[in-house]
């Protein structure tokens, strides 16, 4: 079967736009990995929670999803901070496999709490711009997804600036590199861990706000995203922020093209095969070394 260049180009561009959001989700994951050296299995469930929050403030207060970024980002930062500081940290006693299990437990608890609260129905938002398109040469692009793309890239850059230019960023990088040394020079490691986790959750809140105008939410939705996000993190190099962005865009395109060539149900398999291959061949990632 042949595909016209226009269709393929459209698939690539669509893939890039989805990929940017994936990147944003992966960003939180990779940041937490880079600093705490843990894989946060609750990431997907926290994303679901953020998406429900966007939906809820829209339904309750009529708040536009893009405006919801303003209250939800700090809220999720605080939530993430508290979860790391008061749940994950104390419950895991510093052992890696415990952290794995604690975040798994959190993920099960959050996901099913949402299921109990909202039932398994799928919900979406009605906005007047949800279906608007922008013409770009021969391509018709969804306006909200274009906004999502721009915003996701912007947040990545902001986060990178935060880490490289601010004192908080310096402390985070110090802890990431040498936990013991950092604590010796007076950095409060538990606080930095919690801040990092909070930042990861803040990324999720932004991602949720960017997703909701074109996407839907149900209690299990996070799972689909988180597996993709893991792939991106592994591909981009655990802990690498540019890696997460590149990896996200790449995976977005792969998924979109696999969907085009293999159909929707098999489309996702390309991602997992890449995931497995990268893990087996080079667990430190393709786009750069471990940060």
């Amino acid at each position: 079967m042949m595909y016209s260049p226009a269709i393929i180009a459209e698939a690539v561009v669509n893939g890039l736009m989805t990929g940017a959001i994936y990147a944003l989700i992966a960003l939180g994951l990779t940041l937490v990995y880079g600093v705490l050296h843990i894989i946060n299995f609750a990431h997907g469930a926290l994303l679901t929670a953020a998406m429900f929050a966007v939906w809820a403030v829209h339904v309750a207060f009529g708040l536009d999803p893009y405006l919801a970024i303003l209250p939800l980002t700090p809220l999720f930062f605080g939530l993430g901070y508290a979860v790391q500081r008061f749940v994950i940290g104390p419950a895991s006693h510093g052992s890696d496999s415990n952290i794995l299990l604690v975040t798994l437990g959190l993920s099960i608890a959050i996901e099913n709490a949402l299921l109990a609260g909202f039932r398994s129905d799928t919900r979406s938002l009605n906005t007047d711009y949800g279906f608007q398109v922008v013409e770009l040469g021969p391509l018709l692009l969804s306006k909200p997804r274009l906004i999502g793309f721009g915003a996701a890239v912007l947040v990545t850059v902001l986060l990178w600036l935060l880490l490289s230019r601010t004192d908080t960023g310096k402390a985070i990088r110090a802890v990431a590199k040498e936990k013991l040394g950092a604590s010796l020079v007076g950095i409060d490691v538990a606080h930095v861990y919690a801040v990092t986790f909070g930042l990861g959750c803040a990324c999720l809140a932004v991602a949720a706000c960017l997703l909701m105008p074109t996407f839907y939410v149900n209690p299990r939705i996070g799972q689909a995203f988180v597996l993709v996000a893991f792939t991106i993190v592994v591909l981009g190099g655990m802990g690498s922020i540019p890696g997460a962005l590149l990896g996200g865009l790449f995976i977005g395109v792969v998924e979109s093209l696999c969907g085009l060539f293999l159909g929707d149900s098999l489309g996702q398999i390309g991602i997992f095969l890449i995931f497995i291959l990268v893990l087996l061949v080079r667990p430190t990632g393709m786009f750069g070394a471990k940060a």
């Binding site: 604690v102 099913n112 109990a116």
Partner: peptide, 24 residues
């Protein structure tokens, strides 16, 4: 809790966290 879906799994999740934290 009646027939609220997911309520049992929610308890399991909490239990997992508690078990790892306090009853390894």
């Amino acid at each position: 809790a009646g027939s609220v879906p997911g309520i049992d799994l929610m308890v399991f999740g909490v239990l997992l966290v508690v078990a790892v934290g306090f009853a390894p």
